[in-house]
Each structure stands twice: as structure tokens, then as C-alpha cells.
């Protein structure tokens, strides 16, 4: 590699560099870059008052609050339970482990519309899970608990976003736990650390960069999610309307300028998140090589 970069740089043994790179750039531009640029160009034709009217309207602000709040909460819950799932899958043996491991990817493989109608149905008041939280549920009669409605509320939005985000945490944390050296733990134990100390002071710091990456990925995915949320949310403006749905509503009203203004705000946020994920992965790789290998 070193000689190639310095001495023999001009001589390329392998053919097809210009062809493949040219095709890559052409295809990338036609499918991704030019269409995305269209959104920014369209927004630049708006006046500032028009833009701020669309972007800071009370309805838009309420949708940001819901989208950000529910995505953050879902990513947090996934960070906790995803870490436990990854831990259990790497460290313990139990019946059906292989199936559980394969099933973790279900939210990637299951189309979002199917996830949406399914979650809406089982978390509805008469659904398989929702009935335990509704006022007619047995638990509520015995323990006088307040009834909780899940489907068609903000809680439903949170449930859908949790479903969507689960694999991100598990699949980023799992390889780090698998690569973890048991010798380090043994060293900690022989130096007198108890199990909790070994986890908290040794294992957890090693997993942290991966956990943060997974968290950021789950959060970013949840922000843009549409298919699974529209079915489980009642989609009432100011209450249960997420930002992607607000964009959809504006499109259906043929308010292309308003929809594009909101889209640009979302795009900028996702690009910032993408940058954050890249920085986290860079940090994680540095962390791993300096500490583990």
C-alpha cells in the first residue's frame, strides 16, 4: 500500500477506475444529489417571512415537540432494554436464543405499514396488550389503577418509535460485547472488584461509544419515521401529529412550499445527526483500538 501511494501511483494494474467511479458519481447525482438539491433550491425561492411562517407555525412547533420528545424517549428506553438484550444474547445461554437473535432484526425486515397496523391493533383498548391498560382490564378492577390509552395517543407514537429503534442499539452494542476480553474482567475480579464494579467501571465504559452510536441512529430513524406511526397515532394537529405527517398533510393540500420548508428543516437536522454518528463511530473505533486490541 505504501509503495503504491508514493512510488507507483501512476501505474494502475486494475482496470475500470474511470468507468466505475464515473458511473457511481452519475448515478449518485441523478438519484440522490440533484433531487435533494431541489428541496433546498425550492426553499431558497421563498421569502424569509413565508419560510418562518411555515417553519415556526404553532402546528409545526407542536409537531417538533412530539417528534423530538417521543423519539428521544423511545431511543432512551431502547438504550436500556437494548443493552440488556445484547448482554443476554452475548453472555447467557437459554432456550430459543438463536431465534431471539434473528428476531431482533424484525423491525428492519417488517414493512412499516404492517408494523403500524399491527401495533395499533394490539395496543388498542380491546387489543391483546392494550386491554391490560384499559379501564376494563382485570388488573385495573383489582388494583384501581388509572386507565391508560395507548393506541391513538402520544404514548402510541412512542410505542411505534420504540419498535422501530430496537435493532439499532442491539446491533451496535452486540459486536463490542462479543469482542470484549474476558481477561480484563478476570483482572478486575482478581484485583478485588465485585461484579457490579467490573460492569460499571470496566465493561460499561467500553460499550459507551457503541451505545451512543446506537442511540443516535435510533433517534435519527425515529425522527423521520412515518409508516408505523400514522396508524397508531390519531394524527390530530397540535396533539398527536408528528413532523413527517405534517409534511404529508401539506402535500395533500398542494402546499408544496410549506411542505418543502419543513422538509428542509428535517433534512438539516438529519444531516447534523449523520455527522454526529460519523464522529461517534470514529471515536468508537479509536477507543476500541487503543484499549482492546
Amino acid at each position: 500500500m505504501a509503495t503504491r501511494q508514493t512510488g507507483a501511483k501512476k501505474i494502475r494494474v486494475l482496470p475500470g477506475f474511470k468507468l466505475t467511479l464515473g458511473y457511481t458519481l452519475l448515478y449518485l447525482s441523478l438519484i440522490v444529489l440533484i433531487p435533494l438539491a431541489a428541496a433546498f433550491v425550492k426553499t431558497s425561492t421563498l421569502s424569509w417571512t413565508q419560510f418562518s411562517h411555515d417553519v415556526f407555525s404553532p402546528q409545526a412547533m407542536a409537531s417538533y415537540r412530539l417528534s423530538f420528545g417521543a423519539s428521544l424517549l423511545a431511543a432512551l428506553v431502547n438504550a436500556v432494554f437494548g443493552l440488556i438484550v445484547a448482554w443476554v444474547l452475548v453472555r447467557y445461554n437459554f432456550f430459543g436464543k438463536k431465534i431471539v437473535d434473528a428476531l431482533v432484526d424484525l423491525p428492519f425486515a417488517l414493512p412499516t405499514a404492517v408494523a403500524g397496523i399491527t401495533l395499533a391493533t394490539i395496543y388498542a383498548e380491546n387489543g391483546w396488550i392494550g386491554r391490560f391498560f384499559s379501564s376494563s382490564g382485570d388488573w385495573h378492577l383489582y388494583f384501581h389503577l388509572p386507565a391508560i390509552k395507548i393506541s391513538f395517543t402520544r404514548l402510541g407514537v412512542f410505542v411505534a418509535l420504540t419498535f422501530i429503534g430496537l435493532p439499532f442499539i442491539v446491533r451496535t452494542v452486540q459486536p463490542v460485547l462479543e469482542d470484549f476480553d474476558s481477561e480484563i474482567e478476570e483482572a478486575a475480579a482478581s484485583l478485588g472488584a465485585n461484579r457490579w464494579q467490573a460492569f460499571w467501571r470496566i465493561i460499561f465504559p467500553t460499550v459507551t461509544p457503541a451505545l451512543l452510536t446506537g442511540f443516535a441512529l435510533a433517534f435519527a430513524r425515529a425522527l423521520g419515521e412515518y409508516g408505523s406511526v400514522v396508524f397508531i397515532s390519531s394524527n390530530i394537529p397540535m396533539k398527536t401529529q408528528i413532523t413527517p405527517l405534517l409534511i404529508m398533510t401539506k402535500l395533500e393540500e398542494f402546499d408544496y412550499a410549506g411542505a418543502t420548508a419543513l422538509a428542509v428543516v428535517m433534512l438539516v437536522i438529519s444531516f447534523v445527526l449523520l455527522l454526529a454518528v460519523n464522529l461517534l463511530q470514529w471515536w468508537a473505533s479509536r477507543y476500541n483500538t487503543s484499549n482492546l486490541s
Binding site: 440522490v32 444529489l33 435533494l36 423521520g224 413527517p244 409534511i247 411542505a259 418543502t260
Partner: peptide, 23 residues
């Protein structure tokens, strides 16, 4: 280039459709 290839993953599906409507 690597980051640009990944770009569509970070775009909301609704926006992925919208950009083609704009064009």
C-alpha cells in the same frame, strides 16, 4: 463519497418522495 452513499438512510421516507414531486 462514502458519506454521500449513505445519505438516503438519513432522509425521512416522506421527504424521499417529496423531492421527486418537486422535480
Amino acid at each position: 463519497l462514502l458519506t454521500l452513499v449513505d445519505l438516503p438512510f438519513s432522509v425521512s421516507p416522506v421527504i424521499s418522495g417529496l423531492i421527486y414531486v418537486l422535480i
